[in-house]
């Protein structure tokens, strides 16, 4: 008999201190039955990837509102790959202009949620992927 849970790491890469969205999503995911691990502010991509591996999560959710997403999001994916953990899926959210999205997806970020996205859309996405 198994007692499986989907585990998700929610992290704030970079120096951006706006965690209202990240914390909301963390709570909403918890309420949807996931096990959510929150890492707090000012995380380097290295620290996020290490935490994701130690916590053995299926998903990493990144939130960034400072415009540093193009540098930081792909870095997380890259380090996960280096550590042979490319099966850990990464999604992102925050203030992300639409013309950055194709580049981020190409870099391996599975999905990007922009302002106005509901927690339900995030939950549905995770449940169906």
């Amino acid at each position: 008999m198994s007692n499986k849970k989907t585990r998700i790491l929610i992290a704030k890469p970079g120096l951006d201190g706006h965690d209202r969205g990240a914390k909301f999503i963390a709570r909403a995911l918890r309420d949807a039955g996931f096990e959510v691990i929150y890492t707090g502010l000012r995380q380097t991509p290295e620290a996020i990837a290490s935490a994701a591996i130690q916590e053995d999560v299926q998903w990493v959710g990144l939130s960034c509102l400072s415009g540093a997403h193009n540098s930081l999001f792909p870095k997380v994916v890259e380090i996960l790959k280096q550590k042979q953990a490319e099966d850990i899926k990464v999604f992102g959210g925050g203030v992300i202009p639409s013309d950055d999205i194709p580049g981020l997806k190409e870099a391996g970020i599975k999905e990007i949620f922009t302002p106005g996205a509901t927690s339900k859309s995030v939950i549905d996405y995770i449940n169906s992927n």
């Binding site: 970079g14 120096l15 400072s66 415009g67 540093a68």
Partner: peptide
């Protein structure tokens, strides 16, 4: 920008991606 607000020079590793952004 955030590095300035958090007391890092632009060449600090934590400043990666943040220089001049906000």
């Amino acid at each position: 920008d955030l590095p300035t607000q958090i007391g890092y020079d632009s060449d600090h590793p934590m400043s990666t991606g943040e220089v001049g952004k906000v």
